[in-house]
């Protein structure tokens, strides 16, 4: 455990809390992609299947439970909450997520560390997490005006994997035999998808203007 890893996990948790705060406080999920949230739930469930028999640390277990619970809660708000579900931007959130799920599943079957059910599901979750933000980015692009909390949510979420990259570099330098190239490559792709968004987010922040994405 190092400072980069802890910072990354805290950033990830913060991003989720910002999203829940937005939904709970404003009773609105405008600008939030349900597709992305459902993909994240799929990521967490397939990766943390081992929760009940693979105890690593209390830290890990608590985070796993929190991630599954909070993403379920967000989906519940967006699909079931009387007021919130009416603000869901259904007409713009039309990304076909099978276009992400099927290639990730096929890739996990071909490129994995070991050919076993749980290893393949875990690998699938790594691949899927890398691209799960795409429906959200497409939705932001379509609606253009991004409210503060939604902008902060996406920013923190992108920063989280960037800090994991620092953690991997640190671990590679300090731990003998530490190697995980599937995770590294996926993490690089995942962070790369945010670069464009980071650019506009930081521009808007520097000029203290509202975040607006170009067409």
């Amino acid at each position: 455990m190092n400072i980069f890893r802890v910072s990354a996990d805290i950033l990830h948790l913060l991003s989720i809390l910002v999203l829940l705060l937005k939904i709970h406080a404003t009773k609105s999920c405008a600008g939030i992609s349900l597709k992305t949230q459902e993909l994240y739930l799929a990521v967490f469930v397939t990766r943390y299947l081992d929760l009940f028999w693979n105890f690593h640390s209390l830290y890990n277990s608590v985070f796993k439970v929190v991630y599954i619970a909070t993403s379920s809660m967000i989906i519940w708000y967006m699909k079931r909450h009387r007021g919130v579900k009416q603000t869901y931007d259904k007409d713009h959130d039309t990304f076909r997520y099978l276009f992400l799920i099927v290639p990730c599943a096929v890739l996990a079957l071909i490129v994995n560390g070991r050919f076993s059910l749980f290893e393949i599901l875990w690998t699938f979750s790594i691949y899927l997490e890398a691209v799960a933000i795409l429906p959200q980015l497409v939705l932001l692009q379509r609606t253009k005006n991004v409210d503060n909390l939604t902008g902060n949510y996406v920013f923190l979420l992108g920063l989280y994997r960037a800090f994991y990259i620092l953690n991997w570099i640190y671990r590679y330098a300090t731990e003998p035999h530490y190697s995980a190239w599937i995770v590294w490559l996926s993490g690089l792709v995942q962070t790369g998808l945010y670069l464009d968004f980071f650019y506009y987010y930081l521009q808007a922040w520097k000029q203290s203007k509202k975040l607006q994405l170009p067409s």
């Binding site: 070991r114 190239w181 599937i182």
Partner: peptide
Amino acid sequence: EGGAAAHDEL
């Protein structure tokens, strides 16, 4: 090994 070492991460 592609990812075995990363199983202790989240």
